[in-house]
Design a protein around this nucleic acid. Sequence first.
DNA 1: ATTTTATCGATATATCTTTATCGAATAAGC
DNA 2: GCTTATTCGATAAAGATATATCGATAAAAT
Lengths: 214, 214
Amino acid sequence: MEGKSISQAMLRRLPLYLNVLRSRPASQPTISATALAAELGMGEVLVRKDLALICGKGRPRIGYSVQDLTAAITTFLRYDAIDEAVIVGAGKLGRALLAFDGYNEFGLNVHAAFDTLVNEAETTPGGKQVLPMSELEAYCVSHNIGIGVLAVPASAAQQACDRMVACGISAVMNFAPVHLNVPEGIVVQNENFAAALALLSKMPRSSRPAHETR
Amino acid sequence: MEGKSISQAMLRRLPLYLNVLRSRPASQPTISATALAAELGMGEVLVRKDLALICGKGRPRIGYSVQDLTAAITTFLRYDAIDEAVIVGAGKLGRALLAFDGYNEFGLNVHAAFDTLVNEAETTPGGKQVLPMSELEAYCVSHNIGIGVLAVPASAAQQACDRMVACGISAVMNFAPVHLNVPEGIVVQNENFAAALALLSKMPRSSRPAHETR
DNA sequence: ATTTTATCGATATATCTTTATCGAATAAGC
DNA sequence: GCTTATTCGATAAAGATATATCGATAAAAT
């Protein structure tokens, strides 16, 4: 069996590490867990524990090689292997997501958006296409789409999700604030603005030390 | 001491409950924790524990009053009390966030966006303004802005954050993938696409039961 | 060469979060 | 009215996650 435990929480931290590493000047070829922890405002022991699971040993008094560490995290997260993706739902949110231009940084290639209200192909100012929903199946199959970004209203989410799954999509990023029922083996990642804002409004503002989440 | 523990994780679930409640037909005046749990794909004990902390007791064999529960969650999350907000950073992401139109549903009023690259006020198709960064201070003070949405590049994030804090903002929703240092009493909520995608790419696709996060 | 100091890695502990179990309560059916 | 099924609420157990402690290591300073 796998002795290593791949913690959910740790997976969320890896991109943060990667970002710090990328922002380091080339003049500093190594970085310590202590420095990483300080920059991210977290405990240094936790950083070491995370790094221990994905890369070789660090050197006392020196730390880790920035280059090696970057490579290790990148491959671990498969940021080097491109995943093909589409957006389903071309309302305001869907189009905003389509216009966003930084996906390739973390190994995602967002092709196009699909919407039931669109009858013939449009091209956005950003140069990407918005296509009728009826073309989803053919497109996904021919372009080997593996990831679907779901940006439809809550009422249409489950149906749209089913359709994506039927097209061979194996991971869904869900922006609709509903629970999606999916077959075994399909991953759902919820990205919920409402939830995030709930925390903002409700978190204690003063009494406690300012604390950062995620 | 506060006997109740206000769990981070629970705060993220409350909006989900609220959404289920809102989608219920008026013909069903009550709902059981079991039903809520089933709809959200989670354990029913957890739902009961959450509800126990924010509302009155449920009735055996019946459940909770949909109306009372909705009211309890709404007030608990302060969705009834409007928070005034601005967006800092009017690049693609910032403008997309400005165009998004569902904020009022959860008690947020997004006024305008600010950007250093903008020299005179623009008005977006959605009817909201994009203003020069130099006007941030005056605007925040005169409109009593309490929440700032940070949508600038990573390199400018800390500086922009400092400026927001100086304007009296007490909560920051951070879309930049960096750690923000803030004074005591300021809340930071990170919303990180990269982290979300990391999970999507890396999560085991088949072996395990499909599992939903957040 | 020796001491000092920053850092690592491992083990143990604490904290937070979720799930499991059980008796009590109460509406519905008989 | 009595039984039955469903649901609640509380306690206990399990699991996941983060922190604290400590000896070992190796670069830097003396």
